[in-house]
């Protein structure tokens, strides 16, 4: 799975943004509404225009069309096709790639089984609960066999029990498949439970990066990993909660900066 690099990205939200998502990691982008989280995902997908370069494994993909980037994207509002039943929604990407009916049926069945929604196969989106819709949308995103998975606040409309269940499911699938994943949220619990690394984003700028990597230590700008992940996570959360740039500067410890 590719390492994603964003170099000198600029548009109406970002100015000279640089960031990296490592091969197979789950990066959480944490930020308030209007921070630029969805725009960040849209840049990786190529759905919005931008300046700068997006690289997958060091290869620029700026000129690669969205439909050729091999990305699985779970939209904030899920964007299920209302005119297709669950099986057709999940099998959509397979059908347009010209796969045979039997193959599509088999792969769809496997994905529905993985998401534990086999019984919903012939239902239309309007007849699904919030949690069921999330699972269908995730199955649909995974059907493309994506190299990159982008999740845009997928648990927004769900109760805490369903959130917990889906958080585990997504984490499990992501680890098993080793898909490079960017998970966007404004929910601290989601960020804490799911992220290998957490990036705090506000007003189009990265304010803080916290990492579980390197033996549960925090990546710093000088290479020291002196602070525990939990401590640094709280710095990131403080940064996120306080909101202004000045607050970020004063709230975080130097060890947490990147």
């Amino acid at each position: 799975m590719p390492t994603i690099e964003l170099k000198n990205i600029g548009n109406h939200v970002f100015s000279n943004l640089n960031m990296k998502v490592f091969d197979g990691e789950l990066l959480v982008v944490l930020g308030p509404n209007g921070a630029g989280k969805t725009t960040l995902l849209n840049i990786i997908t190529g759905l919005v225009s931008y300046e700068g370069t997006v690289l997958f494994d060091g290869v620029p993909v700026d000129k690669t069309a969205t439909n050729e980037r091999q990305i699985g994207y779970l939209f904030q509002n899920l964007a299920l096709f209302p005119h297709l039943d669950v099986a057709s929604n999940v099998g959509y990407s397979l059908k347009i790639r010209g796969k045979k009916k039997e193959e599509i049926a088999q792969e769809v069945d496997e994905l529905l089984k993985l998401m534990k929604i086999e019984h919903l196969k012939h239902r239309y989106p309007k007849n699904l609960s919030g949690g069921e819709k999330q699972r269908v949308a995730l199955a649909r995103a995974l059907a493309t066999s994506p190299k990159v998975l982008l999740l845009d606040e997928p648990f927004n409309s769900l109760d805490s029990g369903m959130c917990k269940c889906l958080r585990r499911k997504i984490r499990q699938i992501q680890r098993e498949m080793g898909i490079t994943t960017v998970f966007v949220t404004h929910n601290l619990t989601d960020a804490e439970e799911m992220g290998d690394r957490i990036v705090a984003l506000n007003s189009g700028k990265i304010k803080q990066v916290t990492s579980k990597m390197f033996n549960d230590a925090t990546a710093t700008d000088n290479g020291n990993h002196s602070q525990s992940f939990q401590d640094c996570l709280h710095c990131t959360i403080d940064c996120y909660c306080k909101g202004t740039e000045e607050d970020y500067e004063s709230a975080d410890s130097p060890a947490c900066r990147m």
Partner: peptide
Amino acid sequence: DREVIKAARTLGAS
């Protein structure tokens, strides 16, 4: 819905 069109695009549709 524009989101549905974007979804189709990310799923590989021309």
